[in-house]
Design a protein around this nucleic acid. Structure first.
Length: 439
DNA sequence: TCTGGGGTCCTTCAGCTC
DNA sequence: TCTGGAGCTGAAGGACCC
């Protein structure tokens, strides 16, 4: 195998990889020397998970996506991609491109389970695992080289184990930096392996289009194209000041560094999430404030339950409102102390919504998010003068216990059960069956 | 064509304190 | 007592990623 050549499909043995990644002159350093960063990316992850239990669909154009008129494609098999279908594409368009498309509803429980198995394989290799999402992660294997072999050999071990233990394929990029490792895995997809040695980084990067750079999306690409910058090489040879003027200091310096392969970021084991939120697009636009408030209540319930499940509480509550014309606004408020109580989250979300003073504006989406998370046990609690020691938090914890036993949804605020309900001062929580009502 | 849902990070601006 | 600047924080919006 020539340098940087993609290995695809077949799993290699240690000897194969040793030969394939060695420099041409005998006794010279291996070309994966110093390439201790691995980026592992599952191939069409959600769709691959589904196909494990539906082998009859293999070889067919299959997508996973939300139902309803406003869904988008969440994952597409490579057979579906041949029709031009890709993730985030509106479902209606995907069906037009391929009338024989097989559409499966998402099963996030299954994907979470498979992901946990895959991450366990990674952590068996090295403790330095930085998951980016359910289906991809960075690994720093510097500490595993003596035990398991060179990085390319470790990459093949991972590919083989994920295939054998989880029944899905993955692609691995191997490089000295996170950014190049990620680009390498993108280039080698699907079911491939690509090593980019340090002395080949510039030759690998500079012909790529600017859109391949991390942080360059639709808007930034437009700006760069207006400056006449089409490739990573063009960016590399542009004065940093020009990039900073066009994109701001952070993005300007960031792109200049990436264009020369400079990426000092280390693989870091994440400490935890920084915010928790839920949002929902209505099947059709809604202008009834009562329906919108009820949705805010439902979302607040879900957010607070997740906060409690993770043992965290947050100080800032924000709402997101998307209008029928797709314009979007957010509003937020920072509380005096962190909360994981649905009643408090909803009360704040509702106040933020009411303060907008919308006169029956048609809304497409609403969302609730809690930010500024801290450990719930260490979070200071601001007891109000008339608040009992055992109150809503304890009541909602009781609901959590009941939900764990009987299923989520077994206990629901009365307002979410009874349809358009009261608009009273307890914000719809009065009917919670197990909640002791504070006085 | 018609755009989900979960997140993170950056920029800008306003208000506050020193 | 008044004023301007620095620094901090919160709020809002936007861009981006998977």
């Amino acid at each position: 195998m020539s340098r940087s050549q993609i290995t695809r499909g077949a799993r290699l043995t240690q000897d194969d990889v040793g030969r394939s990644t060695a420099a041409s002159s005998a006794g010279a350093a291996r070309e994966d020397d110093g390439c201790t960063i691995l980026h592992v990316d599952m191939d069409a992850f959600y769709a691959s998970c589904e196909l494990r239990s539906r082998p009859e669909l293999r070889g067919l154009p299959v997508i996973v996506g939300g139902d309803g008129s406003r869904g988008v494609v969440t994952a597409a098999t490579y057979e579906a991609r041949r029709y031009g279908i890709h993730s985030a594409m509106p479902m209606s368009r995907a069906k037009r491109l391929c009338p024989d498309l097989v559409v499966l509803p998402p099963d996030f429980g299954l994907y979470t389970e498979v992901s946990a198995g895959v991450m366990a394989v990674f952590r068996d290799i090295t403790p330095l695992v930085e998951p980016l999402s359910l289906d991809e992660a960075f690994l720093d294997v510097a500490g595993a080289v003596r035990r398991l072999g060179p990085p390319a050999v470790i990459a093949e071990q991972i590919r083989a184990r994920v295939h054998d233990e989880q029944g899905i394929t993955c692609t691995v990029g191997v490089a000295a930096t996170k950014f190049v490792a990620k680009l390498a895995s993108t280039r080698a997809k699907p079911d491939g392996l690509l090593v980019v040695p340090p002395d080949r980084v510039i030759a690998f990067l500079h012909p790529l289009p600017v859109s391949q750079l991390w942080g360059v999306g639709e808007k930034t690409e437009e700006v760069l194209l207006r400056l006449g910058l089409r490739t990573v090489g063009d960016i590399a040879h542009t004065p940093v000041d020009t990039l900073v003027r066009a994109l701001g200091p952070a993005a300007g310096h960031h792109l200049a560094d990436l264009a020369w392969g400079r990426d000092p970021r280390r693989v870091e084991v994440p400490e935890g999430e920084k915010s928790v939120g839920h949002e929902e697009t209505f099947p059709r636009d809604i202008d009834d404030p009562e329906v919108i408030r009820r949705e805010l209540l439902r979302l607040s319930e879900k957010v607070a339950a997740r906060l409690r499940a993770q043992g965290v509480a947050g100080r800032t509550v924000s709402i997101k409102v998307r209008f029928a014309d797709f314009s979007t606004i957010t509003r937020s408020r920072t509380l005096r102390s962190p909360t994981d109580v649905a009643r408090e989250v909803y009360a704040t979300a509702r106040e933020l919504y009411d303060a907008l003073g919308l006169q029956r504006a048609r809304l497409r989406l609403v969302g609730v998010r809690v930010e500024g998370l801290v450990d719930a046990d260490e979070a200071p609690r601001q007891l109000l003068l008339d608040e009992p020691e055992v109150g809503w938090r304890e009541a909602e914890q009781a609901v959590d216990r009941a939900a764990a036993r009987f299923g989520r949804g077994s206990i629901t605020p009365a307002r979410l059960v009874a349809g358009p309900g009261r608009d009273d001062d307890d914000h719809g929580f009065g009917g919670q069956p197990v909640a002791p009502r504070p006085r």
